[in-house]
Amino acid sequence: MFFKLLIRNPQAVIGMSIMAFFIVISLAAPIIAPYDPEARVGLPHEAPSSEHLFGTSRMGRDVFSQVLYAGQISITVGITAGLITTFIALATGLSAGYFGGRIDEVITFATNVILVLPQLPLLLVLAAFLGEVSPALIAFIIGVTSWAWGSRVIRSQTLALREKEFIKAAELIGEPARRIIFIELLPNLISIIGSGFIGAVIYAVMTQATLEFIGLGDPTSISWGTMLYHAQTSSAIYVGAWWDLLVPCVAISLFGASLALLNFAVDEVANPKLRAKGALRRYKRMLKRGEVKA
């Protein structure tokens, strides 16, 4: 039912289509890409042409092939970090909310501390000490530092659900804690977990791009962030090679935007209150017919 509502939502459809498009062309990069992304196949900074769809980089590499392959790494990092974030958020949020007491105190304290610590500077310090961090490491450090918000949301939802009578009733018929958590509670949290996951992926893609752009990433890997980094360090904009910078920019933005649209739609579908209010619509209709005055 949830899925059906989602399919009827135009924002969700646009979001999912763009996202699917990116995932497909990244996966199909070896087939679609005309050149080896790491090979010098042209002169430095050739403008877009039929030979090089998106031009070439300072190193004479084909930007189109690069952006396809880069998608593989950027999307993988985003999804991996998103999974780590969601997993930790879920484990901590559910335990804190369901078990309460000492466990809750410890987890809530940790969550609150992480929430008041500045995220990006913390990541920068970590990355700076770790040296040129590989995409896998980036996914890991983003994952383990950004779960606090999701954890808090899941905890408060769990707390609210825990007081619901259907949970009490399940306890009274003698359901064990593990079944109450996974069978009774969890399905009620799906939309929150889903939108939390999408949010985490957006955050991870953005953060990866940021870290790599300022040169904390591994410059030999090909991702949207390192493409930006190479374009920036080769002063692409100042020599007029706008394509070198703009192509990864557009890729990141479109991918992020598709996820944001999807998330917006999930929220809208899962939270009926945000859907146009029946009463309000009725009021507006009456307004149009002149039955009431604004």
Partner: peptide, 13 residues
């Protein structure tokens, strides 16, 4: 036990 609120006492999922 049978609870007061029939809308809250069954798991919607």
């Amino acid at each position: 036990m049978v609870f007061q609120d029939p809308f809250a006492s069954l798991n919607p999922t």
